[in-house]
Design a protein around this nucleic acid. Structure first.
Lengths: 146, 146
DNA sequence: TAAGTAGTTGAGATTCATTCTCATTAAAGT
DNA sequence: ACTTTAATGAGAATGAATCTCAACTACTTA
């Protein structure tokens, strides 16, 4: 968290942006709490801590966190953008259950090698992988079998 | 196209849905024209053909085409859902250029094998792959180099 | 550490994709 | 044709994300 905070501050400075209280609160809440989140989650979490930050500010700050490389936009659920930590987290892919919405993460070192090859063929320079599949998780397969 | 039409009609029948003129026009336009499209594109294309179908009906029909397996939702661009044909098209992955928005397709037979393995480990039953990466296409790399 | 300056915030208005409502219309079976 | 039941069009409604602008605050310099 200390590391994240420093990276964030450096990033802001490099862009001539200010290290403000709302920006700090948002960043701390993002890293205190969980893996996947959306702006709504975040807003509620911050409110619970009796800190007040407006939704607008969260919407303005999340893209900064993305640009700084600390988080990334990973999926969309219920028509909302979902974000996740990237700093200190291995690349992984998502299996998303169509039935219950569960998100299962799985490593993908070998997959990345193959994708890199394909990208090379196209002279495409990858910034970010976006890998996953949708279907049915273990539990929901059982439910559907009835 | 004949095949698509039949599959579509069978699908509708199996669901006790009617094979109506708007549904036919939408389906034909989808398959006459292009790979990736959004509801707006589709609406404009249909209007150009002097056929009239309301946006609401397109929004209602696209999910039917998805459910029937003829198309799938593949990406989001400019805050809009993007769809693509699936019937008669190999699985592929998308390289999306962050700079110019170009979508490059590339086959992924080997990647799929790996992903299938990972899914098996999690007892996850894959319905649809969702594979790609974002970054810079060949042309935009050059532009940025200046 | 006071003052200046330039970016930031909150609140609410706004936008825009998508969904919903409901009166009217059209398929499909008999 | 007749009847039933779903589908359509038009516009209203929803809701996530963005924008506006007056009030505020972080950083810089003296």
């Amino acid at each position: 968290m200390k590391k994240e905070r420093e990276l964030y501050r450096d990033f802001l400075k490099s862009k001539n942006l200010k290290f403000t209280k709302p920006r700090l609160i948002i960043m701390e809440t993002v890293f205190e709490n969980h893996e996947h989140f959306n702006v709504d989650n975040l807003y509620e979490l911050i409110k619970k801590k009796h800190k007040n930050v407006s939704r607008a500010t969260i919407y303005r700050t999340v893209p900064l966190l993305v640009e700084s490389g600390l988080i990334k936009q990973s999926l969309r659920c219920e028509s909302k953008d979902i974000y996740e930590h990237t700093y200190g987290h291995e690349n992984h892919l998502h299996f998303v259950c169509d039935n219950c919405g569960k998100i299962i993460e799985s490593g993908f070192s070998d997959v990345a090698i193959l994708i890199d090859l394909l990208a090379k063929n196209e002279n495409f320079e990858i910034k970010e992988y976006n890998l996953g599949a949708s279907g049915l998780c273990k539990d929901c397969q059982k439910k559907k079998d009835n």
